Amino acid sequence: MPIASVDLSSPHSNTAERGGLLQAINDQAALYANLIEHAKANTLAPWLQQPERFADTQAVLLIASGSSFHAAQVARFWIESLANLPTQVELASEFCYQHLRSRPHTLVIILAESGEAADTLAALKYAQQLDYPLTIAIGHHADSTLMQQAQWQLVLEVGEQHSRIATKTFCAQLLGLFLITQTLAQSQNQAIPSDIDAELAALPYAIAQVLSLAPQLKQWAQCLQQPSAIFITARQNYTPIASEGALKFKAMAHRLAEACSCGELKHGIASLATQKIALIACLPWDSVAEKNLADLRQFHHHHCAIFVLSDTPLTKINGLNSIQMPYKLNHLNPLLYAIALQLLAYYTSTTSDSFEQNIKKATSKDVA
């Protein structure tokens, strides 16, 4: 998508870009409050209030790349649990090279930052050639090629962007996918949890609480300068959030960062624990929290710094650096952890020399 050009020869350009990225993160509480209001007023996309259009849907296929792919992976959990529809997630760059059969009654949802990337457009064309009956494009510009070619559109306006590092666009896509999940659940006559409206109303306030954790995240960022590698771990629908967090550390701070499910820490990563590494865990207190904590304890006696984001206090556990997240939202909680990791990656970048050189690569006139 078109991005405001920044004069990198200017001595103030990197400072401006740095401030613009932080501003994009900090704008998210107000941005999503606005999107939720539009959804309630039925001005976001009229078909969101017309579940009968999807009554024949029997499966969902999500296609995306980059950060949007991680958003699609989170949405798979929502769609399968709330709408009871089998859901598949594919990379746009790989989708066209698969030998697939047309599956009647499958809803195709394609996500994109710009709506102009060749892989994404080719994936939509391939899906249409396979005679998938319904296609929805989720993006941020109504006049993009992707939006014009899909059957239905969900345009999520997020304002001007100055870099290709996805922050507010990622979480906006998550919110849009959750709204679609509600519509699909209604179309399948699935019971909608009674707390969803209250949860949507509480989301902007919960995001503001996450943003208020900035001083603590800055302290963590100082500690993250020493480890040679960063691993981010989680389970279930937080695992894609860990992947997105790792991507943010690579893009913003030029740090070696990878994501790993808590249950897989013992395979490979445990053998690196004698080196100086950092382990960041997304640990919402749920049915698997105790198991996740047990998986983390195996690293206590190694040269591994452990950082835990959790909605329950963990300060009394030896060997853990913990920050208490806001009160848990039943469904939208992954957004809060995504924003916390965005802030942590940003502050890690500002405590090193990597930000300025990286921002020169991240600033361009076009973005996929």
Rank of each mutant, 00 (worst) to 15 (best):
S5A: 15
V6F: 02
D7G: 00
D7C: 03
D7V: 05
L8V: 01
L8K: 00
L8M: 09
S10F: 01
P11N: 00
H12L: 10
S13E: 10
S13I: 08
S13L: 05
S13P: 07
N14L: 15
T15D: 13
T15Q: 10
A16H: 09
E17S: 01
R18I: 01
R18S: 00
R18W: 01
G19Q: 11
G19P: 08
G19I: 10
G20D: 12
G20V: 12
L21T: 13
L21V: 15
L21N: 12
L22P: 02
L22V: 07
L22D: 01
Q23E: 09
A24T: 12
I25V: 02
I25R: 03
I25A: 00
N26Y: 14
D27I: 03
Q28F: 10
Q28G: 00
Q28L: 02
L31Y: 14
L31I: 05
L31W: 15
L31K: 02
A33P: 06
A33N: 07
A33I: 01
N34H: 05
N34A: 03
N34D: 09
N34L: 07
N34E: 04
L35R: 12
L35G: 04
L35P: 01
I36G: 02
E37S: 05
E37M: 11
E37D: 11
H38A: 08
A39I: 07
A39M: 06
A39L: 06
A39R: 09
K40Q: 08
A41D: 09
N42F: 13
T43S: 10
L44A: 07
L44P: 03
L44N: 05
A45Q: 09
P46I: 11
P46K: 13
P46C: 08
W47Q: 06
W47R: 13
W47A: 08
W47H: 14
L48M: 08
Q49C: 05
Q49Y: 11
Q50V: 08
P51L: 12
P51G: 09
P51D: 00
E52P: 03
E52Y: 15
R53M: 13
F54D: 04
F54K: 03
F54T: 06
F54R: 04
A55G: 08
D56A: 09
D56E: 01
D56F: 00
T57V: 01
T57S: 00
Q58S: 08
A59R: 02
V60T: 11
V60S: 05
V60G: 09
V60D: 05
L62F: 12
L62Q: 01
L62R: 09
I63P: 13
A64M: 06
S65Q: 04
S65W: 03
G66Q: 10
G66H: 07
G66R: 13
G66Y: 10
G66F: 14
S67D: 15
S67C: 14
S67F: 00
S68V: 11
F69A: 14
H70F: 08
A71W: 00
A71S: 06
A72F: 10
A72G: 14
A72L: 11
Q73T: 08
Q73H: 02
V74C: 04
